[in-house]
Design a protein around this nucleic acid. Sequence first.
DNA 1: AAACCCCTCAACCGCCTAAGG
DNA 2: GCCTTAGGCGGTTGAGGGGTT
Length: 326
Amino acid sequence: MVRPPCCDKAGMKKGPWTPEEDITLVSYIQEHGSGNWRAVPTNTGLRRCSKSCRLRWTNYLRPGIRRGNFTDHEESMIIHLQALLGNRWAAIASYLPERTDNDIKNYWNTHLKRKLAKLQSGSDDHAQVLKSSSIRSISKGQWERRLQTDIHTAKQALLEALSIEKPNIESSQSGVSMNYYDSSAQASESSSTTYASSTENISRLLEGWMRNSRKIESGQCTPQQSFSDTNAAADSNSSDQGTPSNNDITLPGRMGSMWGFESSTSDVSQSISLDEAVNFLSDPSNILFRDESKPNLETQVPLSMFEKWLFEDGVVTQGLSLSLDH
DNA sequence: AAACCCCTCAACCGCCTAAGG
DNA sequence: GCCTTAGGCGGTTGAGGGGTT
C-alpha cells in the first residue's frame, strides 16, 4: 500500500540542481506560471519529478526570498510563533514573507533548538515555557487535538508575554513599519557559493519580471500568486465550512476585522488589547481556519494587530530575545 | 597536511488532504 | 461514496564546507 515516491520513476534525476536546470525551470515558470507542477517535467524536459521542481522553486528560485543570516527580530518571531503554532513551519513562514518554511525549519533545528536547550539548563521560566512548547509534538492527522493544543499554547504564550512586560498595545504607535526584515541583514553573507549567488541573480531577474507581468494566464494571477496563494483563494470562503483545511486558524467575523484581515489599510488604529486577544483565544468557538499560504509580497494582507504585536520589539525582543541573548 | 568532527542546509521521503473523475 | 492523483507539509538525511586536533 505504500506508494512509491514519484522520484523513483525511471530516469528521474535526484540530488543537487545544476544552474542549467534552474534556468530551465525559471524560464518555464516565467512563461507559464507555476500552477501545474505535473506538467513541468514533461514540458521542460527536466528529468526531475514535479515535487522536486516545486520544492526547488518555492525554496530557492522564487523571487523575494532572502537568504543568509536571520535577524534578531526574525529569530524572535520564529520563537514566538513556534510557541504559538508548534512546528507548523508553513504557517510560521507566512509571517516571514522573505523566508521559506524550509529555511525556518532548518534554522529552528540547527540554531534555536540548541539555544533553547541551553536556556533550559538554566531556571528561566520563560525558557521553560518555550521549551515545553517546542517539544510538544502534534500527532499526525489529529487536527482537532492540535487545534486545542494550539489554543492552549497561544493563551500561554500571550499570558507569558504579559507577565514579562505588558505593553500598551492599544496606544501603540500608528504605522508600525514592516522593517522586520531589516535590510542591514541583507543576505549576502549567505553561505554563498558562486552558484548560490547566481541563483540570487535569477531571482532578481524574476522580481523585475513579476512586477511587469501581472497578467499571466489571462487575468488569473501572477505566477507568484498562483504557486503560493492557491490556498488563499480556496480558503477565502472557508469560514462557512465545517471541515477545516489542513492546519490553520482564521478569525472570521469580528475577529477577522479586529485582526485586520478585512482591512484594506495597515492602519494600526484598529487595535486590540492583549487581554482581548487572550479572551478571544480562550473561546474555541472563535477559531476557524486561516490561510497559511505564503502571502504574496506585493499583495500582502495588512498586518493584523496580533501580527503587529508579534513584530513589535517591545514585546518580542524584550519578551523573548532577552532570555536568548543571555 | 591529514584526519576527524561538527554544522549547515538543500533535497528527499512519507504522509495527509483536497479535488476531480 | 470510492478511487486516483497532485499539491503541500513536516521530518529526516547526507553531501559538503569549515573548524579543530
